[in-house]
Amino acid sequence: MSRREPLRGEMPHGSMWGRVGAMVLRHLYLMRSSWPRVVELAYWPTIQMVIWGFVTLYLLQSSSVIANAAGVLVTAVILWDVLFRGQLGFTLSFIEEIWSRNLGNLAVSPLRPHELLVALTVMSFLRTLIGVLPATGLAILFYGISIYDLGLPLVAFVACLLVMSWALGMLVSSLILRVGQGAENVAWLAIFLLAPISSVYYPVSVLPPWLQAIAWCFPMTPTFEGMRAILIHGTFRPDLLVQALALDGVYLAIGAAVFLYTFRVARRHGLLLQQGE
C-alpha cells in the first residue's frame, strides 16, 4: 500500500513539530487539570516582588534600623527558616508515606491517627534542628551575629514558630490527602503565601492598614515584632508573646481537627490505598 501524501497545511505524523506539539499539548492538559501547577507559575515572582518591596519601604523610612540591619535581617532569616523547615519537615514526612505507598499499611496497623500526628510532629522538630543549627553556627562564623544573644526569648520565639509550622503542615497534608499528589507543590508554596504579612523583614506598620488587620491574625506577626523589639530597642514584649501563643493554640487545634477528619474520611472511602506515585 502506498503511503498517503499529506494534504496542504496538514502536519505529517512523523514530523518533528508534530511530536513537539503533542508533548506541549500533553503538559498543557496536565496544567489544566492541576491548579497548583498553574498557581506556581506566577507565585514566586509575585511573592518576591511583594516581600522585597516592603523591605525597601521599611529601610527607607527608618534610618535607625539601617545601622542594625545586618543583625535584624540575619536573625529574621534564621527564625523564618525555623517556620519554613518545621512546616516542610512535617509535610515531607507525610508525603514520604504516600510515595512509599505506606498509608494503607498504617491505616490497618495499631497506630492511631493522633499518634501519626505526634510522630510527624517529632520528625518535623528533628528535621528543623538538623537544618537550622548549622545555619546559626555559620552566622556566627561569617557575620559575627548570634541569635543566641536573644537569650530565653529565643526559646519562646522558636516555640511559637514551630507550633504554627505544625498547624500549617497538618493543613497542607490534609489537602494532599484529599486532592492527591497534584497538590504536592503546595508543601513548598503554602508558607510563602503568608510571608508578606508575617512581618519577617519589616514591621507590620509598613503594610497598608487593611493588610495590617489581617497580619495580626497570624502568630508569626507578633513573634517577629517581638524579635525586632529586642534587637532594635532592647525591650522584651510579653504581650506579643502571649498573643502569638494564643493564636498558635487556635491554629493547632484547627489543623489537627482538619487532618483527623480528612484522614477518617479518606480511610472510609478507601482513598488511602489509592495514594502513591
Results as ranks from 00 to 15, higher is better:
Gly53Tyr: 05
Pro113Leu: 03
Val118Glu: 07
Ser64Gly: 12
Leu7Gly: 06
Asn102His: 10
Val82Asp: 00
Arg112Lys: 12
Ser33Thr: 06
Leu150Met: 06
Thr235Ala: 11
Asp149Glu: 15
Glu10His: 10
Val82Cys: 03
Glu184Gly: 03
Val155Tyr: 08
Arg127Ala: 07
Val265Tyr: 12
Asn185Gly: 10
Val65Ala: 10
Arg112Ile: 04
Ala135Gln: 13
Arg19Asp: 10
Ala253Met: 13
Gln212Pro: 10
Tyr201Val: 01
Pro203Asp: 07
Arg4Met: 12
Val82His: 00
Tyr202Val: 01
Leu247Phe: 01
Gln243Phe: 06
Arg228Pro: 05
His13Leu: 15
Val172Asn: 01
Arg228Phe: 05
Arg8Trp: 13
Gly226Thr: 02
Ser64Ala: 13
Gly151Cys: 05
Gly182Cys: 07
Gln212Arg: 12
Arg32Thr: 08
Arg127Gly: 04
Phe236Lys: 03
Phe90Thr: 02
Ile66Ala: 14
Ser199Met: 03
Gln48Trp: 15
Arg19Trp: 08
Leu207Tyr: 02
Pro6Gln: 01
Pro134Met: 11
Val200Arg: 00
Arg85Cys: 08
Ser100Cys: 09
Gly21Cys: 08
Leu25Lys: 14
Glu40Trp: 07
Gly89Glu: 00
Met23Tyr: 15
Val65Cys: 08
Trp35Pro: 06
Arg268Tyr: 06
Leu73Ala: 04
Arg112Cys: 03
Trp17Gly: 11
Asn105Met: 14
Leu193Ser: 11
Met123Ile: 13
Tyr143Glu: 12
Val250Asp: 05
Met49Asn: 12
Ala253His: 11
Ile230Lys: 06
Glu5Gly: 04
Tyr251Phe: 12
Val163Pro: 00
Leu106Glu: 00
Ser100Tyr: 10
Leu240Pro: 01
Pro6Asp: 02
Trp210Met: 15
Gly270Asp: 09
Cys160Val: 06
Leu175Asn: 02
Phe236Gln: 04
Gln274Trp: 04
Val122Trp: 09
Asn102Lys: 09
Thr121Trp: 00
Thr46Phe: 13
His269Tyr: 14
Leu152Glu: 15
Pro219Gly: 01
Trp216Gln: 11
Asp248Ser: 04
Leu150His: 02
Leu152Met: 15
Leu175Trp: 03
Pro196Phe: 04
Ala266Met: 02
Ile254Pro: 08
Leu161Tyr: 03
Leu272Cys: 00
Trp188Tyr: 13
Val65Thr: 08
Tyr261Gly: 13
Gly71Ala: 07
Ala266Thr: 01
Phe236Glu: 05
Pro209Val: 10
Leu30Asn: 13
Pro209Asp: 11
Arg264Glu: 09
His13Trp: 15
Ile230Phe: 10
Ile230Cys: 10
Leu57Tyr: 11
Leu252Phe: 10
Met1Asn: 14
Gly276Asn: 09
Leu252Cys: 07
Leu83Gln: 02
Val250Cys: 08
Val200Phe: 01
Ser93Pro: 05
Met11Asn: 05
Val186Asn: 04
Leu211Gln: 08
Ala246Glu: 07
Pro110Glu: 01
Val122Phe: 09
